[in-house]
């Protein structure tokens, strides 16, 4: 008999805890401190992947290494050339923006990270990265891989963080077509295929198959002009009020392990989460760096913009001015319904 009462008590207790966790934020502290305990478990669970990576690195033939080295050198050469162009373009862009008294838009402060776990819940697309509050990670930071935008940080633990991918069906990414600046919101698809669907795009809009979608910077969450996806199908169905447009994300969601966390720009502060708002506040209170200095830095050594992974060097010693400062930071619910 006592069994029934006990289970009823625990059901009520769970419901109370769930309610408290979803409505109030004091359980976030508990979750955060218990993150110290869960980090070793994630580390252990990641061991097979690390071992297989290590084996791939160690048991590789000399010829393969030489070949890969050559290929990488070649790629580096091309990348360096584009970087030279980019430095020039960035300087020019910033100068033009300075003429128009707009704030500088180019910033490249990133923190390398690794994906160490994938959420097992069906219907969600979240990954765990090996950077946490001790590395200065904040809720809302964007995650990139070598090819494009991957997602944003939704929960920060001491040594790890959960990142919601842009292909999650609750995630909407503000994008624009690179060719003509047509704006849309790309939502993760509900199906099993990790792809994006453009929402509420009128039939008359000029979007074609093969168009590159870049982040539009609206919504104040993702920086502007990072590649997001490529349009794979456009269907104009007269029975439906809007065009059905699907896009394939450029980031390699399920095969890549090495990713980058992009530093937040100035006023995209953590919204009272209690996790690490101090980090942003100190940055905001510092005087802005003149645009000329930024230009000099950028054109002098663009490749040194990558921040070292040590926690000390991560904290921002200069604020990164946001590009659309007059738009209010929006609520997280608008971004991820």
């Amino acid at each position: 008999m006592s069994l029934e009462y006990r289970v009823a008590a625990f059901v009520v207790l769970s419901m109370a805890v769930m309610f408290a966790d979803s409505r109030f934020d004091y359980l976030d502290r508990v979750r955060y401190s218990l993150g110290f305990l869960t980090a070793p478990v994630y580390w252990l669970a990641d061991t097979p992947a690390r071992v297989s990576n290590w084996i791939d690195d160690v048991f590789v033939s000399h010829g393969d290494l030489i070949e890969e080295n050559e290929r990488l050198r070649e790629e580096l050469l091309f990348a360096q050339r584009e970087l030279q162009l980019l430095a020039g373009l960035a300087t020019e862009n910033n100068r033009l923006r300075a003429l128009q008294e707009a704030s500088a838009s180019v910033n490249g402060r990133v923190l390398p990270a690794e994906i160490i776990n994938v959420s097992s819940t069906p219907g969600t697309r979240r990954v765990l990265i090996n950077r946490g509050a001790t590395d200065g990670v904040l809720v809302g930071q964007a995650l990139l891989d070598a090819h494009g935008l991957m997602g944003q940080v939704v929960e920060v633990l001491p040594f790890t963080s959960w990142v919601m991918l842009i292909t999650d069906s609750r995630h909407g990414t503000p994008v624009q077509v690179n060719r003509n600046g047509e704006r849309a919101v790309a939502r993760g698809s509900r199906g099993d295929v990790p792809e994006l669907e453009l929402e509420f795009v009128p039939d008359t809009s000029d979007i074609e198959v093969g168009d590159l979608l870049v982040s539009s910077g609206l919504g104040q969450r993702f920086p502007k002009d990072y590649p997001v996806a490529e349009v794979t199908s456009v269907v104009h169905d007269r029975g439906q009020p809007f065009a059905v447009i699907k896009a394939r994300p450029l980031a390699q969601m399920d095969s890549t392990r090495h990713v980058m966390l992009l530093a937040l720009t100035g006023n995209e502060a953590d919204r009272g989460d209690g996790t690490a708002p101090v980090w942003v506040d100190t940055a905001q209170n510092k005087p802005a760096v003149p645009i000329e200095e930024q230009i000099e830095e950028l054109s002098a050594s663009p490749q040194e913009e990558v921040v070292n992974p040590e926690p000390d060097s991560v904290s921002p010693d200069e604020p990164l001015p946001s590009e659309v400062a007059d738009i209010l930071p929006e609520e997280p619910s608008n971004q991820q319904e």
Binding site: S14, A16, V17, M18, L37, S119, T121, W162
Partner: peptide, 10 residues
């Protein structure tokens, strides 16, 4: 719940 990052108590 802690490990999955889901709602506590679920």
């Amino acid at each position: 719940d802690l490990l999955e990052g889901s709602l506590l108590g679920l």
